[in-house]
Simulated assay, not measured.
Amino acid sequence: MTTFASSLKKEIARVARKELKDELGALRKASAGYRTEIAALKRQVRDLQVALRQTSRRADKVLKTVAPEAAAEAADAPRRGRRAVFSAERLKAQRERLGLTQKDMAAYLGTSTLSVWKWETGQVTPRARFLPAILSLRTTGKREVLEQLAKRAGGGAD
């Protein structure tokens, strides 16, 4: 009986390999086609990037000859700089440094206490309209924030 079972196993394995061979051949063919298509797309992207750089350089030259004042202003504007990135830990540290509660921070930023809590726990990132105020906290002192909070609290009562 064991020879029958082992020969049955071998036969099943042989049939399974035969079936898989056809399917794997089709998959390999498709995969090779996809790889060539991806390579062609990468070449196309590289060529487009080169063309974009060349066009940008030509535009800068034309801008300098046509409107030198505008070119000077464009040169003065920072093209690439460090981009400010929001950090939940940094926001919490700033709030604690300023001695504010989440409620005070929410009043200062013009949002809800729940939003401040979600920002600090990293569940949500603030919308773009809040980022300048949050980033300005890095350079704002405790007295200045408390004065602004007092003004807002006093202005709202009038």
Rank of each mutant, 00 (worst) to 15 (best):
E120H: 00
L63N: 10
T55R: 06
S136A: 13
A77P: 09
L131N: 02
V145H: 05
R83P: 04
L98W: 09
D158V: 15
R53A: 11
V15Y: 06
S136Y: 09
R35E: 14
A67R: 15
E11G: 04
G155T: 05
R43M: 13
A16N: 00
A150Q: 13
Q49I: 04
K9W: 01
M1H: 10
T125P: 08
V15T: 03
A72D: 04
A106P: 02
W119L: 02
S136E: 14
T36P: 00
L24W: 09
A39L: 04
R143W: 06
R95Y: 02
R82P: 10
F86S: 01
Q54D: 12
P126S: 09
G99M: 06
W117H: 13
W117G: 10
A26N: 07
K18P: 02
R83M: 02
R95V: 00
L20K: 05
L8M: 09
A153Q: 11
G155V: 09
S7Q: 12
G25Y: 07
A150I: 08
K151P: 04
T101E: 14
A71G: 11
A13E: 10
K10L: 15
A13I: 10
V85S: 12
A40G: 12
Q123T: 06
Y34F: 11
G122F: 00
L27N: 05
A72V: 10
E23A: 14
R46S: 15
F130N: 04
A72K: 07
A5W: 03
Q102E: 14
D104P: 02
V62F: 10
S112Q: 06
S6W: 12
G81S: 06
G156Y: 15
R35L: 13
S31D: 11
R43V: 05
P68K: 03
T2A: 07
A107C: 13
V124I: 00
G154F: 08
L131H: 01
R17A: 04
S87M: 07
R90N: 05
Q148T: 10
R14A: 05
Q123D: 02
T55P: 00
L91S: 05
K21A: 13
T55W: 03
V62C: 06
F130S: 07
A133D: 05
V66W: 05
V85E: 15
Q44V: 12
A16H: 04
V85P: 10
L114G: 06
R43H: 10
A74H: 06
S6Q: 13
Q123C: 00
K142P: 07
A74C: 08
V145Q: 09
A133K: 15
R95S: 04
Q49F: 10
F86K: 01
D76M: 15
S6C: 08
R90V: 14
V85Q: 13
A77C: 12
F4N: 14
W119D: 01
A77H: 09
A75Y: 01
Q102M: 11
A59N: 00
T125C: 13
R143L: 02
R90D: 12
I134A: 02
D22Y: 11
E96S: 05
D158W: 14
G156E: 15
Q44R: 15
I38E: 04
L63H: 04
G155E: 07
G110W: 12
S112N: 03
A153G: 03
E89G: 14
P78Q: 14
E69Q: 15
Y108G: 06
G33P: 01
K9P: 10
I12K: 08
A77F: 13
L24V: 07
L146Q: 07
L41S: 09
K103L: 05
R129I: 11
A59P: 00
D76F: 14
G33K: 01
T55E: 07
V145K: 01
